[in-house]
Design a protein around this nucleic acid. Structure first.
Length: 337
DNA sequence: CTATAGAG
DNA sequence: CTCTATAGA
């Protein structure tokens, strides 16, 4: 979900080429898995799955995108969500309701023969569950790509990595990492540059957002940005009815944040939310390390275990694996390991 | 989402 | 080469 701040980002979303994104990418793992899971489906909404019915959509997505990162000189580093703060309980139960409604609508649409509605409902029914997460982590291990589980929100941990210089930028479709203080956020980091929106294929390109520029453009501080977010709604509180990004910005600039909350949402205590964004739980003692991919293990997992075809997996591995030992010549990705 | 084939 | 359709598991 994330925070609806898009309208405030005009002029601060800079198109960026893949080749300009060298460095370490701190990737919001749950966000990435969710995207794969919701989008990689057949026309009727059925996800990719092996012969035992285990979902594999996310493994396909992870494999190809991670490979693409590596090929472009980007070192991917996946950050998973840890224990959600209790502030997030309402959002989580709301998401659960949406998923359950999605499941029912999916069945309905299928029985009506409406495949487009079925696909949309299936997307809504997506859940990044334990099995999805653990299989994804296992694939990353085999690919030699580091990952870690944040103490709390992954985007908060990503923001720390960026600001500590451990990562070059944060990767997510959501804007939350900006609120957590990430100085650089990259969105739309997909391989194809296309996305299906309401059935139509739309071209999208990677965009980079600098927090300092955003704040400077809006003439506000990060604290004020968080105040704006609280007014329009975050994962930790509902937005105030009738207040969108634009009104929120005026309120905050005029110094009427607390007064507005007292007046329009007296039950909302913004202090713990503010504190959570400004100094979230993070760990400082994790340092990512990259290894060469273990091609045999990747094939073992994807082909033997999940029924992927070797013809699809092997070429991908050949592109990211270093040349066989003893062979001279072109060094490939070894340069980074 | 990504890869691949086929069409333009 | 770019675009569109479709399979993948």
């Amino acid at each position: 979900m994330g925070v609806p701040l898009r309208p405030l980002l005009e002029g601060c979303r800079h198109p960026v080429e893949w080749d300009a994104l060298f460095g370490v990418a701190a990737i919001d793992a749950n966000n990435a898995l969710y995207q794969f899971l919701s989008i990689i489906r057949q026309a009727d909404g059925t996800p990719l799955q092996d012969d035992r019915g285990r979902v594999t959509s996310h493994l396909s997505g992870l494999l190809f995108r991670t490979t693409y990162f590596l090929e472009h000189g980007i070192r991917p580093f996946y950050i998973f969500d840890g224990t959600p703060p209790s502030l997030k309980a309402k959002t989580l139960s709301k998401r659960r309701e949406i998923r359950e409604a999605g499941k029912e609508q999916w069945d309905d649409a299928l029985s009506r023969g409406d495949t487009e509605a079925a696909y949309r409902a299936a997307m809504q029914s997506s859940k990044v569950d334990r099995a999805i997460i653990e299989s994804g982590q296992r694939l990353l291990d085999a690919l030699g790509v580091p990952w870690m589980v944040a103490p709390s929100e992954g985007e908060a941990q990503s923001a720390f990595f960026v600001d500590a210089g451990i990562a070059t930028y944060s990767v997510s479709q959501d804007y939350d990492s900006l609120l957590f203080g990430a100085s650089v956020l990259v969105r739309n980091l997909t391989v194809s540059g296309k996305r299906r929106i309401r059935g139509k294929s739309v071209t999208i390109s990677p965009e980079r957002i600098y927090l300092f520029e955003l704040l400077e453009t809006l003439g506000i501080t990060r604290e004020m940005l968080v105040q704006i977010a609280i007014l329009v709604g975050t994962d930790f509180n509902e937005g105030i009815y009738g207040i969108g990004p634009k009104k929120a910005m005026k309120i905050v600039r005029d110094g009427h944040f607390h007064e507005t909350i007292a007046e329009k949402a007296p039950d909302l205590d913004p202090v713990p939310i503010m504190e959570f964004f400004l100094s979230p739980p993070i760990t400082r003692d994790f340092h990512p390390e990259w290894r060469s991919p273990d091609s045999d293990l990747v094939v073992e997992i994807l082909c033997s275990e999940y029924g992927f075809s070797t013809e699809r997996v092997q070429p991908v591995l050949n592109r990211i694996a270093g040349p066989p030992k003893g062979m001279s010549g072109q060094q490939r990705l070894d340069a980074w390991f």
